[in-house]
Amino acid sequence: MARLTTPFAKAKHNVEPTKDDKDNAQKAHLEVRTHLERDPTLQSYGIDTVLIGSYKRNVSIRRVKDVDVLSKLPYLLGNCDPRTLLQQFGRVLATAYGPQRVELQDRSLKVDFPTLDLTVDVVPARPSLARPNSGYIEIPDKNGGWQETNPEKLTELTSQMNKHYGGEYVPLVKLIRQTRRNNLDKRPGGFFFEILTYHAAMSGLGADSDESLFVSALESIARQLHDVVVLGAPVPDPTRPGECIAIRTTAAQMTAAERTFRELAAKARQATKNTACEAALAYQQILGRNDDGETVFEMPAACNSDGTEKQLIDPKRGALNVPSGTKRFA
């Protein structure tokens, strides 16, 4: 029988961005997009802004720190230098927000919203020159060139996968991102683990309970990390068949991630064999606290905080039954 349904539901709730998070993110990205779309130069490139990233795919976890805005420029000339383009974006945004709030990065511009405690990353993009009409786009890379990508496809794939898992895929991604945040340093990042979760889901996860879904996803991710670190296997990009994900991480960081997730998966698998209270304690340790300092996985009502069982009234002994039975009057 399924168990720990309620603590898992609460855990999903506890990693969910708050209403303030969502409101702030919306306010910030709408404002930035309006400034960009009003600029005459960018208008001449046919600017069309869309949301991408974890916020768009609804896989952000509390707190939402950044929102990604893709600025598609369909009329941009093929010989355009990405650095020049980024500077053009920088001028538009600096005019709107002041230079202190706009930071030029390798491949995007970061606009700071200090009062909202978040940033908006603006990523310029043009249609793929190599594969025109494919839907693929190119964005600046850190070496001053262009890099092919297909971020909107991931939004579509996420939605399809979520439907396939009866709405449980997106919450699972959030729990995996929370697990990463609680157990690893900055790299590898949440996006990388989202892709690993996608591959895990593609391979088929135990979906008869929240517990089996979570544990089987952890095990699949641990196996994929093992293949990356030990076998040097690439991670396929689900949005571009035949291509792989570019991983911005050091070997040491990847090795640490592999070791950590191997241990977490083993711990979770062992938990499935233990009592519900012992298992709950294990999941609590794996998921840790959210950015508001709240415990993500709360102990079930029947369990003490140390994973032992509470002495409760046993309904099987008839504690809730009325001794005199039905048809009573008083």
Binding site: A2, T5, T6, H13, A301, A302
Partner: peptide
Amino acid sequence: DSIAAMREAFIDEARTHGFRLDSDC
């Protein structure tokens, strides 16, 4: 605690019968 535990046990049993718990439990 006992009442909350009964509630959670019911939810687990309903989950076994294919029911899903909403986000606010």
